[in-house]
Design a binder for these strands. Structure first.
Lengths: 344, 344
DNA sequence: CTGAAAGCGCTTACAG
DNA sequence: CTGAAAGCGCTTACAG
């Protein structure tokens, strides 16, 4: 039905192998033959069947991307599209396609990955998360299948290539930033510590406070919903010595807290300071614009893809991990306060 | 290297064709043989090579998703991940994979699509946008390749299956909503009218006003940046008879306008009312929470995928277009005003 | 420089 | 109910 290499071979009066070689732009084919064959390909509207090529080359030129199971709310996390764009850019440069895991639950995701890997549908995998006891990870490791992880592995850290921010440091930095502008009672609102990223950030927060000689830590683990933000704010308002600043780990969480705060009549940054992680447009467009930690999701995605492709093209490359730097983007959601005033 | 159908055939003492049949769960194979073969597959850790299967079946069981070229800012549009999740859910149910176009510019996207289509890498395509004179669309049409579009086609409307909201009506509805609570001077802030969706919404806005006997239309075409929002707000403030309400076509645009308004000392909804389209978490978490048109991106994606798969499995199905209903979600960004007060 | 042949790992008429 | 054979559309040693 579709035009194949044989059709053009016949019409161009050469062997199929010759056609194959002109497609690959093989150096030993004369320019003359190339021209002739190309002309016929043009005329016939020939396009190589990638399935067939992949079968013999044992490579699909596509990369599988596996996301964590998505709750109703994580769909809107701006991290995903930004990282996806980073991966997509690099992959396009290097002529690879993207295949996305479509599973909903953890079991389905696992099934997707097994199918991708065993079915030879992808040459490598990028995992967009790192969590405890992840069967997907186990499987990849057991199969010795090429992959890189965005986030820090919880185990096998010496065998796994990953790209990540230094989340401990990043969280320490924001905390220290808040300390430096006079805050002493700082609350932390993070996510599920089953994920390494949240463990790290929580640790960074704790470290910074401890180093500053502050024993009092206020830690919430919240979900990205309006209600969750309200609960946090209510709990905060009930405290005897209410924190003067809040560190949030997620922009939507920040929005949620911000709106609860407003509803309660508190103003940011006048009554309380607020920071976040991620730095998408949301932080910039917020009122007030949010001071955040820029984690550079685009670059995380880009570097992860780059590392994976480098690995595929040179399987015994030295293991390398990449730490993408974070930086604090100061906007208007944090206020300098004087310590004395706060001590009472 | 990897274990193939031959390996299990040999070990199970049957022919490769028999193994193939037990994989397909062919009814004419005895349960006994099936058990025997399955046991060996298990022992050997056999998994079918999908590339090979696809080659003979001439189907890849994967769907290509093509997005519009992405500006820096459209990356964060919550529409994409939500629609993606809808497609992903349905596709997973039906056992299809997803392949994403990775191109950046319009030319690259076109190249991606040609490769997907001619390379037989995908069985069908979902286009996530509709724009004037789109070469991607031309190509799909010319090749008679199965696809469905999210959005309304600008041409060939009788040949193309699409799923969309009734954007004219949706825009008319919000406009009428604002009219119904007393607003007479209503501004519209939309996007590039090269995209059908924006054309439609602008038309709906215009229609509603005209039907209400209001000649004065205030239309902006803005981009999703902080600056763009500021410009709109400045232009608005310079107007002699400043609008009392703004219809925005995009949540991030709304955020941008909201923050510019705040910076200028104007309050929503007290000084001016604001509405938006899309209704992701952003609108819910905004301060004040935004009244929006819920366009149901998840369902748009789901229905598009469903239509495409139905088409693939039954190529001469009747053409069908699906209109996903929209609804107005009232929150706190719109205020009822009395006409008299406003007339001067 | 180009061709004939084998093979990638499956599936599917066709026999029996 | 199962097997032998051909074929899906390519690529790549191996010859010449």
């Amino acid at each position: 039905m579709a035009v194949t290499i044989k059709d053009v071979a016949k019409k161009a009066q050469v062997a199929p192998s010759t056609v194959s070689r002109v497609i690959a732009d093989h150096p030993k084919i004369t320019q003359e033959t190339k021209d002739k064959v190309r002309k016929v390909m043009e005329e016939l509207g020939y396009h190589p069947n990638l399935l067939a090529r992949n079968l013999v080359k044992k490579s699909s030129q596509t990369i599988g991307i596996v996301m964590k199971e998505s709750s109703k709310h994580s769909v809107y996390d701006p991290f995903f599209p930004a990282a996806l764009k980073g991966m997509s850019d690099l992959l396009h440069e290097r002529n690879y396609s993207i295949s996305l895991s479509t599973g909903e639950t953890n079991e389905e995701i696992y099934g997707d990955v097994v199918k991708m890997v065993q079915g030879k549908n992808v040459d490598g995998i990028i995992m967009l998360y790192s969590r405890d006891d992840d069967p997907v990870l186990q499987h990849l490791l057991k199969q010795d299948f090429p992959f890189v992880m965005i986030g820090k592995p919880t185990t096998h850290i010496n065998q796994i290539m990953y790209v990540d921010n230094d989340n401990v440091k990043a969280a320490r930095n924001v905390t220290e930033y808040l300390l430096s502008i006079g805050h002493r009672r700082i609350a932390y609102v993070g996510g599920d510590p089953a994920f390494e990223v949240h463990k790290d950030r929580q640790q960074g927060y704790t470290e910074a406070l401890t180093m500053a000689g502050i024993q009092e830590k206020t830690i919430f683990q919240a979900m990205i919903t309006k209600e969750s933000g309200e609960e946090v704010v209510e709990a905060l308002l009930k405290m005897e010595n209410r924190p003067t600043a809040i560190i949030t780990t997620d922009e939507l969480m920040s929005m949620s807290i911000l709106s609860s705060l407003y509803a309660k009549g508190l103003r940011v940054p006048d009554d309380i300071s607020l920071t976040s992680f991620m730095d998408s447009l949301i932080s910039e467009l917020s009122s007030p614009p949010l001071t955040t930690v820029d984690i550079q999701p685009f670059q995380l995605g880009y570097e992860a893809a780059k590392t994976l492709i480098d690995l595929l093209e040179n399987p015994d490359m030295m293991k390398r991990n990449i730490l993408v730097p974070t930086s604090i983007v100061e906007r208007q959601s944090c206020k300098k306060i004087t310590i004395n005033k706060e001590l009472l």
